[in-house]
Amino acid sequence: MSAALPPFPKSQENAGEPELLQLGSSAEDEPCLRADAARNRARLLCAAAQLVAEHGAAAVTMEAVAAAANVGKGTVFRRFGDRTGLLMALLDHSERTFQAAFLSGPPPLGPGAPPTERLRAFGVAMLRRSTDELDLQLAAEADADRRFAAPARRVLHGHLVLLLRQAVPDADGELLAHTLMGYLNPVLVHHLTRQCGLPLERLEAGWIDLVDRVTGERRDR
């Protein structure tokens, strides 16, 4: 007989709506950041964004950003840690905006709509966001040790857990949320849209069908 899986932490079992978190820190989050350090950070992010716009996310290396911003490479490493940290900082504004939309924005993505409607809206919004910034999201994908522990991913997963507990209270919301997040993974979106040529509309329809099958509800077509 196989051993039973350990329970999820009690602190997560009765959690409410997750609090707003970001991918990385920003200058306004660090009131003690020296003025020159804040300027360096802004210059580095501006240089990185320009590299993405002109050459794609693959061109964003620590060395290239340092050269474009006219600072030493060590400055880039001290500020962002590594390339993934730099790319995640670039995604920070988008992440903040998206989190605000599903945590406190208008329904059906935000509060006020039934949980199944919010699940449908969440996935559609995630898919559209991923296709809009796919190269950057792929480049910022963390390694296996950090991928599921990243603060932003924990917020997205926690939000799905909350909605699933409301829509299907008898299900294992923690594990089911991971399954649903797999459908929205940027790597899969890249494969389906760019390698397989599927239109975004088909992915959106597939998400809605998946939610409806999981919750047992069917939206009027």
Rank of each mutant, 00 (worst) to 15 (best):
A125Q: 08
A125C: 11
M126D: 09
M126T: 15
R129K: 10
S130R: 12
D132A: 15
E133H: 15
E133T: 15
L134D: 03
D135H: 03
Q137V: 07
Q137W: 14
L138S: 02
L138R: 02
L138W: 06
L138T: 03
A139S: 11
A140R: 01
A142H: 10
A142S: 14
A142C: 14
D143Q: 08
D143R: 13
D143P: 07
A144C: 04
D145F: 13
R146Q: 12
R147E: 07
R147P: 00
F148K: 02
F148L: 09
A149M: 11
A149F: 12
A149T: 14
A149S: 14
A149H: 12
A149C: 07
A150F: 03
A150I: 02
P151L: 09
P151Y: 10
A152T: 07
R154N: 09
V155H: 00
L156I: 06
H157E: 07
H159G: 06
H159N: 09
L160R: 00
L160W: 02
L160D: 00
L163C: 04
L164C: 01
L164Q: 01
R165I: 04
R165F: 07
Q166M: 13
Q166V: 08
D170K: 12
D170C: 05
A171L: 12
D172L: 10
D172G: 07
